[in-house]
Design a protein around this nucleic acid. Structure first.
Lengths: 357, 357
DNA sequence: CTGAAAGCGCTTACAG
DNA sequence: CTGAAAGCGCTTACAG
């Protein structure tokens, strides 16, 4: 027992040489720790002379404040937790970068988790962030959605919640969304204006709000232009490059095949469409029009370049963070449901431009 | 004064309804908080009966442990801090995703900061993470490098440090690197084997180790194949798409222009080369060979597709996290400098394949 | 197996 | 302007 203790002591000693605390500084200067705290926090009244003395000594002793302690005491840790399906997907990486810009300016930190599209992982992420006492959780739900109890639990614990992009619609929370429906309407209308009439839709999982909205936009645009809906032109769950390629093969094998395909799920889907079209010797955009979603970097450099929708993802990240800080400044009780909508932008490129531009 | 206090109380009350603590549970069960703590931590001896009672009550009262408190007490917060130049750059996003996989498995969290390639920001990030008492800092230095005092400071504070990719070479720390030199040797040798002889190099900022090593590899490969070095074929700081395009124009305007360009800085540079080549009507790979670096997603789908080097970035993230956990298990004093090298892989595509493959 | 007590490092009303 | 004291919520040696 004694041996064991001694051993640990030695190791710790060699490793840490014990960090300086405000008590160390106080002792050295024959002051009380509370004065040191006040001088360092730079907020309460301390005489200029002692403040300077304390700051100098702190620097000299290489003092680093212990955020854990001050956070515990203050009951806030100036941290925002982020849960996304996948960190290294362009859209989410941009959101995170956008969040970071603003949170950094405000002296906050980001704790990041990824759900990997799994419901179970998402629940675990939420619990971890609640335990960490983050001030706010910013999240986009996993495709595998089962239940929203864990999300409600965030609010029960007095933690602010901002949902973005993929959200649990029914919950009364702060939300930052893209206007997916409107973007879809514009994309499909553009295809109609280019002369396409048999427009197919590649859909994402309909349990996610964003994919439902994109489908609604597609239907709305067809209605507005008096084009009849042909169910066989709508393909469900075509949301990866492979699934989209497969769906495209099926579509093009129809007796009355589509003359345009709106890959509403992603640009990777659009890429799948383009691949199959090239394989089959169809010219794009003349024989087949294509529109994707997300404005991934590669859409600009494919041959032909791909028409798509830019979601302003970095700006969206900024907007989310700004929303948090604005709400946090208001009385804690004041924040009800509130939605900010970002307007995506149709980027017209070669894959849908029959009339040269 | 009293008013003020009352106001705060109300707000807090309405917002939080006060989270359950182990004391609340103890009081309810007529036990001591220490027993509750032991039952919940699941480690010390508690009778099966009381353990069950405590766990049930905790669930019923919606207890969420306060990590801040336990971390402060234990002096560790099971968190790894990450500092990267840019979160939404593919390589770093992949590294982060790779880190997250392993840290998650081990019950650790990630706190992420981005330096935006700025030295000042990097120093601030380091300080924040030190104050947060993270167990480890994983970092890749900003391009704007001034001094390594902040990095030394990490170790002075008893925090483990793992440098990766872009590192301060002189410091004795754990390092996880790509074998940039070897990758360059292979890329340039491949170009030689394809019959290219006047091979130009686009270099990155030479204050970063990775770009120095890639240049060394280039020089080594030329030497090995008995090809003379022509300084006018080596362009410094060509590390964005625009700068590379510019450098390419200059190179191709030479009286004896290159027949291949190794864009050692990134695939975006390679893209800049490809653009200019297309503009000037040069056929790739016949009249000009191109090789990039990083294996960005788009390199597969450009026309022609781009030969490049895959850095196994997700696996590199995994390796970094595993290194931390392995070292952490060893005695705290035992960890000296140590380097893990990941072997990148040359991906040969059309842009450098004169002989069809 | 359980309880009582100290302490992690800080902040903040309360006195003076 | 400064000091003394309590407390944030937990963990952990020490007794029993």
């Amino acid at each position: 027992m004694h041996n064991n203790y001694f051993h640990i002591f030695t190791a710790t000693n060699m490793k840490n040489q014990k960090r300086t605390t405000i008590y160390d500084i106080a002792r050295k200067l024959n002051l009380n720790a509370s004065s040191v705290s006040r001088a360092l926090s730079n907020t309460s009244k301390v005489s200029e002379a002692t403040r300077k003395l304390i700051l100098d000594t702190a620097r000299e002793m290489n003092y680093q404040p212990n955020s854990l302690a001050s956070n515990l005491r203050r009951g806030s840790n100036r941290t925002i937790g982020v849960i996304v399906p996948r960190i290294n997907q362009n859209f989410f990486a941009d959101i995170i970068a956008g969040l970071e810009e603003i949170t950094y300016e405000n002296g906050y930190n980001l704790v990041i988790c990824q759900s990997n599209e799994s419901y179970k992982r998402e629940v675990e992420c939420v619990n971890t962030l609640i335990n960490q006492q983050v001030n706010c959780i910013v999240m986009s739900v996993a495709a595998e959605f089962e239940d929203d109890e864990h999300i409600r639990n965030i609010q029960k614990n007095g933690i602010r919640l901002i949902q973005f992009d993929r959200v649990a619609d029914e919950l009364d929370t702060l939300k930052v969304l893209n206007d997916n429906r409107q973007a879809s309407v514009e994309a499909v209308s553009h295809l109609v204006e280019q002369g396409y009439r048999r427009i197919a839709l590649l859909e994402g999982p309909q349990n996610l709000n964003i994919f439902r909205q994109r489908k609604e936009g597609y239907l709305q645009a067809l209605a507005e232009h008096g084009i009849e809906v042909r169910p066989e032109l709508m393909k469900v769950n075509a949301w990866t490059q492979e699934l989209s390629a497969e769906a495209t093969r099926e579509l093009l094998a129809l007796s009355d095949p589509p003359d345009a395909i709106f890959a509403s799920t992603s640009d990777f889907s659009a890429l799948g469409v383009l691949q199959v079209a090239t394989e089959l010797g169809l010219t794009v955009p003349d024989q087949l029009g294509i529109c994707g979603y997300s404005n991934e970097a590669f859409t600009e450099i494919t041959n032909p370049s791909i028409t798509t929708i830019d979601q302003h993802s970095v700006e969206m990240g900024n907007a989310i963070a700004r929303l948090y800080f604005r709400e946090a400044k208001l009385d804690a009780t004041a924040s009800g449901p509130k939605t900010i909508t970002i307007k995506p932008q149709l980027i017209i490129r070669e894959s849908s431009s029959r009339h040269k531009f």
